[in-house]
Simulated scan of single mutants.
Amino acid sequence: MTTFAVPKLHFDGSTVDVLWDNHEEAIHWFEKFMSWEVGQKENWKPDPRCTEGKMTRMNWGTWLISSLSSVRLPHHFAERGTVESNIRLCWRTRNLKQLHSHYKSNGVRVTDIYKGPGGTTYFDFWATYEGIRFTAQEDKQIQEQGIVPSWIRLGVSDLEKSIQWYRNYLGMEMESDFSKDGYVIMSLQLNHQRDQKSLWVLEQLTEDAYIGKIDGPVRPICWVTDREDFFNYHTFLSESGIETSDIGGFTTRGMVSFHAYDPDGNRLNFSSM
C-alpha cells in the first residue's frame, strides 16, 4: 500500500442530482418550499462525455446538477427507485411543527416528527416531483424565519469502528462523544470559511436498517485543495481496499470528482479543480 498522508479535506456544500427534464421545476420547488434563490446558473457539463449539462447554484452552496449522456459516467450518476440512503442532509428551522404542517397541507411527503441526535426533533421530507429526501431539524435559537444549514447525519452499523474509519480515511476530528446515546459529532473545516467547521453526526443504525451501497441524489462534497493530492488520495483509498469509482470530470484540466463508500455503503464524494 502506498505511504500517503490523507490530505486536509474541506466541506464544499452539496450537489443534488436532478433529472434533466425536471431541472427547472426543481428550481421552482426550492424557491417555493425552502425560500431559496438562484445564485448562479450555467449550461455546464460535469463530464466531457456528457452531451448537455445544467448547473444551478442555490442557497448555502447547494448545486442542482443535470446532464445528458449516451454512456454511463464513472461518477456523476444516481440510482433511483431503490432504498433511501443512510445519509441525511439536515436543515434547521425555528418552528418545526409549523413547517411540518405547511408541507403536509401542500402535498409534500413527510415523515412523522421524531426525536434524533442533539436532543432535538426532526422530520424527513421529499423535495421536488422526483422525491429527493432532505431532513428538517428544530432549532429554537434561530432568530430569523426560513431554513438554514445544520449537520450531516450518517447512519452506521458499528459506531466505534466508523469513528476510527472516518478519522483514518477522511481526517475527521471528534467534536462531541455521545456514544452512550448512539451518536457522535465529528467535523471537517468549511472550504470557503476555513475558520469554521462543518459538523457530521455518525449515528448508530437500528438492527433492521438496510446496509449496503446506495448512490442517492443528495451528495455532500469533500474538497481536496491540491490537484495532485486529489489523484494521490484516490490511489490511496483504492489501495487501502476501499471501493472507489473511477475519476470523472475533466481530468486534464478542470473539475474532477470521484466517490468512495464507507464500510456501510454510504457514498462519499470528493472533488478538486
Score class of each variant (00 low, 15 high):
219 R>W: 12
132 I>R: 08
145 Q>M: 11
216 G>M: 03
30 F>T: 05
207 E>C: 13
131 G>E: 11
82 T>Y: 06
147 I>G: 02
95 N>D: 12
138 E>M: 12
46 P>G: 08
149 P>N: 06
162 S>A: 11
187 S>E: 11
113 I>D: 13
225 T>Y: 14
36 W>V: 00
131 G>A: 01
153 R>T: 03
175 E>K: 13
214 I>L: 13
158 D>T: 03
143 Q>K: 13
40 Q>M: 10
154 L>F: 03
41 K>A: 02
133 R>F: 07
40 Q>T: 06
147 I>E: 14
44 W>D: 12
251 T>W: 11
210 Y>I: 15
97 K>C: 14
181 D>F: 07
100 H>Q: 08
210 Y>T: 04
182 G>T: 04
244 T>H: 07
69 S>T: 14
174 M>G: 03
154 L>E: 00
92 R>Y: 07
19 L>F: 09
169 Y>Q: 04
104 K>L: 13
194 R>P: 04
76 H>W: 09
176 S>C: 10
98 Q>R: 15
195 D>W: 09
21 D>E: 13
84 E>D: 14
254 G>A: 09
268 L>Q: 10
273 M>S: 11
22 N>F: 04
219 R>H: 08
169 Y>F: 13
257 S>E: 15
10 H>R: 12
18 V>G: 06
92 R>C: 04
239 E>K: 14
129 Y>F: 09
152 I>F: 00
204 Q>E: 15
70 S>A: 09
226 D>T: 07
125 F>K: 00
234 H>G: 03
137 Q>K: 13
129 Y>L: 14
144 E>R: 14
252 T>S: 13
130 E>G: 02
250 F>W: 14
40 Q>W: 05
6 V>C: 07
219 R>D: 01
187 S>V: 01
221 I>D: 04
145 Q>D: 15
117 P>F: 01
44 W>M: 11
89 L>S: 03
185 I>R: 03
100 H>T: 00
157 S>R: 02
89 L>G: 02
61 G>P: 06
69 S>Y: 08
112 D>N: 11
37 E>N: 15
120 T>M: 07
102 H>N: 09
158 D>N: 10
222 C>Q: 08
208 D>F: 05
126 W>L: 06
145 Q>F: 05
144 E>N: 10
220 P>Q: 05
209 A>R: 12
57 R>N: 03
148 V>I: 06
230 F>K: 01
58 M>P: 06
195 D>P: 00
133 R>W: 07
49 R>T: 07
18 V>D: 11
196 Q>N: 12
75 H>K: 06
1 M>W: 08
175 E>D: 08
130 E>L: 07
97 K>D: 14
14 S>P: 13
270 F>R: 07
248 G>L: 05
12 D>L: 00
192 H>V: 05
26 A>E: 12
231 F>G: 05
123 F>V: 01
44 W>Q: 14
47 D>F: 02
199 L>I: 03
21 D>L: 12
22 N>Q: 11
55 M>W: 09
